[in-house]
Amino acid sequence: MILYVISVGLSVTMGLMGFINLAHGVFAMAGGYVFATALGRFGVPFPLALVLAFVSVALASVVLERLLYSRLYGAGELAQVLFTIGLIFVAAAVARMIYGTLAPPVFLPEYMKGEVDIAGRGFPTYRVFLIVFSAALIAALWFGVERTRWGAMVRAAVDNRGMAQSVGIDTRQLFTLTFALGSGLAGLGGALGADIIPVQWSYPFEHLVYFLIVVAVGGLGSLRGPFVAALLIGIADTACKYWIPELGAFLIYAATIAILLWRPQGLFGARA
């Protein structure tokens, strides 16, 4: 689920803007740090810390987008790949300077710590919360993209940028907003997952492959795609590690290759 929240943001930026953003994990990491710091050091209440993670990362991404990313919209893939790798390096270094090499502890509030009873079995409250929250988020996003004016504009811009511009949609502003949303989602995902996936300076490197797999398998510019892909990969990965640990992540990669060869544009991607 966390994978989904992070990846859907990436799918939005990559799919909509056609920008190969390897640095997406940076935003997730930043969200995780903001969240952990707010909770731990300043005693911010849990819901507020989540909002903070989302908003601060989204704002930071706007600055980055305006200053740097926007210069490379027309550039080749290689330039975008390298540029975002560079960003990862910078972010990792900065994170390490501020937080050192250890992940900051995440202090969840008491009401998130226990277990809840569902159908006679105990489940950790926090995980249940994560699933419910993510599901709500998915519903909201779905509604946003399918039903609102903003969603219509985004989809129009994805389909045909020139056309969208000519009917008076300010694609530049739209892109900035969308980028902020995508990054904000990553930040939120990083924050939500901070308890389960430790936020360290090497975070953007370690999980890069997973984010990319989710997006590539799911298909660019689709919300459903990464959702299904994240779910598939999450379940497959857990199942794999549970039943045949000796294979490790092997099957995930093999499946990714198979899917991409079968459908190079991803499961739900628009046809290239």
């Binding site: 330039a79 390298l82 540029f83 560079g86 390096f89 910078v90 972010a91």
Partner: peptide, 11 residues
């Protein structure tokens, strides 16, 4: 940090 900045600058 240096490598990252350099890379961004080169691009």
């Amino acid at each position: 940090l240096g490598i990252g900045l350099l890379l961004v600058a080169v691009v």
